[in-house]
Amino acid sequence: MTNRSGGCACGAIRFTINAPLMNVGVCHCTDCQKASGGGPNYVALAPKTSLSVTKGEAKTYFSKGDSGEDVGRAFCPDCGTPLWSLPPHAPFLTVKLGALDHNADLTPALHLYTASAPPWHLMHEGRPTFPKMPPFPPPGA
Rank of each mutant, 00 (worst) to 15 (best):
A58D: 10
S50G: 07
A12H: 12
A58G: 06
R73I: 07
T16Y: 11
V24E: 11
A12S: 13
V71T: 04
A44T: 06
G11L: 07
K34Y: 14
K64G: 02
C32G: 07
A35N: 02
T54L: 06
C29I: 10
I13F: 00
A46P: 14
V26D: 12
Q33V: 09
G39I: 09
G11F: 06
I17V: 14
P47Y: 10
G37L: 05
T60H: 13
E57S: 12
S50M: 11
P40S: 05
K59D: 07
N18T: 08
M22V: 12
A74D: 04
D70H: 08
P82S: 15
L21H: 02
E57P: 06
D66C: 11
I17E: 07
A46C: 09
E69W: 13
T60A: 04
P20V: 14
N18Q: 03
F75P: 00
K34E: 08
A44D: 09
N18C: 04
L83P: 00
R73C: 14
G68P: 12
C32I: 02
P47G: 11
G65V: 07
T81M: 06
P20F: 06
D31R: 05
L45I: 08
A12Y: 06
G11S: 11
T16D: 14
C27H: 02
F62W: 03
S67G: 10
K48V: 06
K48P: 04
C29S: 03
G39M: 11
F62E: 04
C76H: 06
T30K: 09
N18G: 02
G65C: 06
T16P: 09
P40G: 00
G68Q: 13
N41H: 02
A58I: 11
A12E: 12
M22K: 09
G68H: 14
C79A: 15
A19D: 13
P20L: 09
N23K: 03
S50T: 09
C10L: 13
Q33S: 09
H28D: 09
E57R: 05
K48A: 11
Q33P: 04
G68K: 11
T81L: 03
P82E: 14
H28L: 08
L51E: 01
T60Q: 08
F62C: 01
K34N: 08
A19M: 09
C29V: 07
I13T: 11
N18D: 13
R14M: 11
G38T: 08
V26W: 01
A58N: 05
H28M: 02
D31L: 04
G11V: 13
G68W: 15
Q33K: 02
T81W: 06
A9S: 10
N23S: 15
M22Q: 15
M22L: 12
A35V: 05
G65Y: 05
A19Q: 12
A46N: 03
G37W: 04
G25P: 03
K55C: 10
D66F: 05
I17W: 09
S52H: 09
K48D: 09
T54S: 03
A19K: 15
A44F: 02
G56V: 03
G25K: 01
A9T: 15
T16I: 15
N41M: 07
C76W: 04
N41K: 07
L51H: 00
C76Q: 03
P82V: 14
T54D: 01
N41C: 06
G25N: 03
P77L: 13
V24G: 07
A12Q: 14
D70S: 03
